[in-house]
Amino acid sequence: MKLRVVVADDQALVRGGLCMILESQPDIDVVGEAEDGVQAVAVSVRERPDVVLMDVRMPNLDGIGATREICAATAAKVLVLTTFDLDEYVYEALLAGASGFLLKDMHRADLVAAVRTVAAGEALLAPTVTRRLIADVLRQRRAVAAPVSDRRLASLTPREEDILRQVARGLSNAEIAAELVVTEHTVKTHVSKVLAKLGLRDRVQAVVLAYESGLVRPGT
């Protein structure tokens, strides 16, 4: 079964290029396009895609607002298209439910791999993108505020807390399994329990909580 993708970007040339790259893959089908946030929400609710590529700066409804509405109304994973000079939007995008970030100067292979990764449920993208952005934003936030304790962390077992730390480092299930010397299936089970106990949508939200609570600190 093909992965269903919606592409939202107000620049027709960029949008067309993204669609062309994705449509060239045998396992991906672009089921809709949008030139603003309102259209992105409408087409996502109608088509129920697996993944939505979402630009941040769009007319009528920006990418943050559209992400929030799409995540509330559908099971779609949203990948936010960003550049490093848009770091101020990262935290709001995460709160809105974004599952990761893509750089607009990404390589073709990175775009395709990211869509497949997120659709498969990994959610957290390469540490060089999502983890760096999260760390930078939260470092700036903590320059004026101390880490916020989160009572939900008390519900985790020592092993689950350790798993959360590894997830926050940007490691995949396979990498965590290798580091902790357990099976990948065991890691997947622990990650699912962590998300359920903390009431989180995906791994990206887990990373944010880990940094915000001080469980993991930028640079560690």
Rank of each mutant, 00 (worst) to 15 (best):
90 V>K: 03
48 R>L: 14
14 V>M: 10
94 L>R: 00
122 E>S: 00
206 A>T: 07
117 T>S: 10
4 R>N: 13
59 P>V: 01
131 R>S: 05
24 S>W: 04
109 A>V: 05
18 L>V: 02
111 L>M: 06
64 I>Q: 11
208 V>T: 12
182 V>P: 12
112 V>A: 01
19 C>A: 14
176 I>W: 10
10 D>C: 09
146 A>V: 02
174 A>D: 06
213 S>Q: 13
195 L>D: 01
185 H>I: 04
144 V>P: 02
72 A>D: 11
54 M>Y: 08
120 A>K: 11
54 M>E: 11
191 V>K: 15
5 V>Q: 04
92 E>F: 02
132 R>A: 05
204 V>T: 14
101 F>Y: 14
66 A>N: 09
160 E>K: 03
25 Q>A: 14
165 R>D: 01
79 L>I: 15
81 L>A: 07
191 V>Q: 10
167 V>C: 05
178 A>R: 14
37 G>R: 13
6 V>I: 06
125 L>W: 10
160 E>V: 01
161 E>Y: 00
113 A>H: 10
165 R>P: 04
153 L>Y: 04
141 R>K: 15
102 L>Y: 03
121 G>S: 14
172 S>A: 03
61 L>K: 15
157 T>P: 06
69 E>V: 05
77 K>W: 06
153 L>A: 01
218 P>Q: 08
111 L>N: 04
211 Y>Q: 08
213 S>L: 10
16 G>Y: 15
161 E>L: 13
149 S>R: 15
31 V>I: 11
74 T>I: 02
42 A>S: 08
126 A>Y: 12
177 A>E: 08
120 A>N: 01
9 D>K: 11
195 L>P: 13
74 T>H: 12
114 A>Y: 08
215 L>R: 07
176 I>D: 12
17 G>N: 12
129 V>G: 02
128 T>Q: 13
129 V>W: 14
167 V>I: 14
47 E>P: 09
24 S>F: 07
187 V>W: 13
86 L>E: 15
11 Q>T: 01
8 A>H: 00
174 A>F: 02
154 A>G: 11
84 F>M: 11
33 E>Y: 05
85 D>A: 03
79 L>C: 04
172 S>C: 02
156 L>G: 05
161 E>R: 13
22 L>D: 06
108 R>L: 05
78 V>W: 08
193 K>F: 08
195 L>K: 07
27 D>K: 03
129 V>F: 09
68 R>C: 13
135 A>T: 03
215 L>I: 02
208 V>L: 15
143 A>L: 03
177 A>N: 12
65 G>D: 03
101 F>M: 05
156 L>S: 03
186 T>G: 07
183 T>F: 09
197 K>E: 07
70 I>M: 13
89 Y>E: 07
140 Q>T: 01
166 Q>N: 14
151 R>G: 09
161 E>S: 07
49 P>H: 03
149 S>H: 05
117 T>P: 01
